[in-house]
């Protein structure tokens, strides 16, 4: 089975977020980027587990400029066989999805796995768009994924319970927490990542939306500690200062 795993980079959760160009663009200065955790921990690792159990290849696909190469090398160090980077800096999900679909079209991937969302823009729409553009079935937010005889069985969390879905491959699946466990690359993987192929493809696509402005949430107010034996003071503050009761 040949699996395509979509890998995005995202700012480390400890990054200080700032904007540039009149608050229309994210400012990457001083930001440490990581592999988007949903792509790395769940989509990529489950793809590797499926390959280890049943053979095949795992290829990663990233839409981005050369600044994304470190996260691609990490994905290769974790165990992907090969990587493709579409050399384009997208500004919205539609652009990313169009470029992923343009690459995947006709390549014969049995399964396209994506993280359920990136932890920066949290759009959760790219995998669905890719499926629509390729006219493939799509199962969102899978927490378990098994494949047998050309059919994927995906477990999904639904309100109050779980849903088991079957889908004939090829298909697109987005991965949520639970689909696999984080894998830390080992030294062999890091060494072999040096020589694994990272193919750079040209590409361009139209965006469907334009960002007008970004803004930061308001600062959290400072925390006021009330000793445990002063419940009356707590109630007074909640009533008179916070005005929530």
């Amino acid at each position: 089975m040949n699996i395509l795993v979509c890998i995005s980079q995202a700012p480390d959760t400890t990054s200080r977020i700032a904007f540039t160009n009149g608050d229309k663009e994210f400012d990457p200065n001083g930001v440490q980027f990581i592999v988007n955790p949903y792509d790395e921990w769940y989509a990529l690792v489950r793809a590797l587990e499926l390959k280890e159990a049943g053979g095949g290849t795992v290829t990663t696909l990233t839409v981005g400029d050369a600044s994304t190469d470190p996260v691609i090398r990490k994905a290769l160090a974790i165990g992907a066989d090969a990587a493709v980077r579409v050399d384009f800096k997208p500004t919205d999900s539609m652009q990313t999805a169009r470029l992923i679909a343009a690459h995947a079209e006709g390549k014969g991937y049995d399964l396209i796995l994506c993280g359920k969302e990136t932890i920066d823009y949290n759009g959760s729409v790219v995998p669905g768009m890719v499926a629509a553009l390729l006219d493939l079935p799509y199962v969102a937010l899978g927490t378990k994924l098994e494949v047998a005889n050309g059919v994927a069985t995906v477990m999904r969390e639904v309100t109050g319970g779980e849903e088991e879905v079957e889908v004939t491959l090829p298909a697109v699946v987005s991965a949520a927490k639970g689909m696999a466990e984080q894998r830390i690359p080992n030294m062999r993987g890091i060494m072999s990542a040096r020589t694994k192929p990272l193919q750079v493809e040209a590409g361009s696509a139209d965006a469907a939306t334009v960002v007008r402005t970004f803004s930061l949430p308001e600062d959290k107010g400072s925390c006021k500690m009330i000793p445990a034996d002063q419940a009356e003071e707590l109630i007074r503050l909640l009533r008179e200062e916070a005005k929530v009761i």
Binding site: R73, Q182, P185, A193
Partner: peptide
């Protein structure tokens, strides 16, 4: 180098886990 950082971050992640 990127590889230095990957090696360091791998050791850090392993230690934390």
């Amino acid at each position: 180098t990127e590889e230095h950082k990957l090696i360091r971050d791998t050791a850090r992640a392993w230690v934390k886990k």
